[in-house]
Design a protein around this nucleic acid. Sequence first.
RNA 1: GCUCCCGUAGUCUAGUCCGGUCAAGGAUUCGGCGCCUUCGACGCCGUAACGCGGGUUCGAAUCCCGCCGGGAGCACCA
Length: 512
Amino acid sequence: MPELEDRLASLGGPEAGRPKEERAATGEFPELPGARHGAVVLRLAPFPNGALHIGHGRLLYVNDYYRQKYGGRILLVFDDTIGSEEKRAEPEFFDLIRGDCELAGVRPDAVFYKSDRVPLFYPWARRVIERGGAYVCTCAADLLRERRAAGAACPERSQTVEETLDGWDRMLGNAYGPGEAVLRLRTDLSDPDPAFRDRVLFRISHLEHPRVGRKYSVWPMLEFSWAVDDVELGVTHVLRGKELVIEDRMQRFIWDLLGVSGPPFLHWGLLRVREAKVAKSKANREVRSGLYDGWADPRTWSLRSLDRRGISLEALRTFILSFGMSLADIEVAAETLYAENRKRIDPVAVRRAFVAAPVRLEVDGYPFDLAEVDLPNHPDRPELGRRTVAAGPAFFLAHSDLADHAGGEVRLKDLVNVRLPVEVPPPGGVLRATFASRENRRLPRLQWVGVAGAVPVDLLGVDGDHAPGVAERSVRELDPGTIVQFERVGFARVERTWAPGSEPVRLAFGHP
RNA sequence: GCUCCCGUAGUCUAGUCCGGUCAAGGAUUCGGCGCCUUCGACGCCGUAACGCGGGUUCGAAUCCCGCCGGGAGCACCA
């Protein structure tokens, strides 16, 4: 492999251009060590087994922040090695993830697939072996694990370079089945960190890969593939979550062994959104089973589900960048994201009336001249226009509103005051109330929808529930994708999949 | 258990490297008041924090030591 030898030589020694011990400052966003404007190359490396969610948002936006800051490039590198029986790459996610990046406004400058690059890793492995840095181990997985924990060597650890090369060739020559042999890095069995002792570099798998089928049976582990690709692809800085710190050590160990230099690493801490129970495997299962409404189901907390709910991904960007590069593990309430989104959509979302779980309210003595009323589309923005809505004498009101105020006097918002009876029927029932007065008094204000103009609405909730309700007629004229505010309920977005004019009008709830 | 990381108000964050201008700033939440005919917006007001204990120093959120607490890794996953 003389070519590789030359390439390695040209890449410089371990100290060449390697910055001092880098560490994410607790400050906002530290300078990237050694970065030159226009010469920064970053990478996103998702595994294609699900849609991108809020956690990936940090990956996208932090990398994009630095791309903009330094005029750099972002590579999207699908980390689609063979995975495992439980964690497999799946074909539909390649395009889906690219779409998610677009949606998030983080367009990669180039796209690569690890599965195209497998043959590239083999000569590097051979070089590591020749330097005495690895050995072929045929221990069973659990035995290997036990010995690692105990700091005990397996008999094969002492094999010579020639023996290892021979074993490696037999691995490549399909002499072993899955689980029968691995190539292990020779680190130090007394390393204080048990996780770092002789980690596996390559293993054998006969699983079918969605892109390359069964073309390869010897697959690299993540750390080795990145030790190669961060160099081969010219990545200048690796920004990733701190759960991957041990991979830094692995990569550096391999680079030092081969006498090449690689990029510095920067990390951020764990980010949890309290309401988002991010269980990708569960989401995967429920999407597949049909329980979830695809990858835009609100319960997945995927980027596309946020978009569906009318949560601007620019609001998500601001939200995520507000955490800086802190290494602290944080848990934040979704409300903080909602507050950020509200700033953006409140000024532009038109107001509409919606009533969930409606009860029909007939008002005795209702004034004849108030069959319809004219209302502004936005209380503070007259330029957004007005609309006319049908009013009484028959209305729909939310069952919960009526129950809260049974027996009292209330004001139908923007309309008149009525006196409610003590007994409230369940949703779908009918109730008689009496007209009280017209003047605007300080009474509890209830939202209403005039029966004459009511259209049925299906409102998708954050828990995936479908709340049936009614809304004023003008919601039927909304374009798919429009974000509205249902007064006293919250913001919602007209589903893009809704066929205009059809009933019920379908929307997805965003947040209060 | 071992390794690494992190501890500033309910939550997130600025400040910590290079000690004084920090009787600790911002955002969000919560409470109150005002206002627009929304539980939404806006305005005003308010509650609320340097994990604990030692040390160094004229002076410590900031430096040192020891505890305590939280998280992650310890896969032939990524």
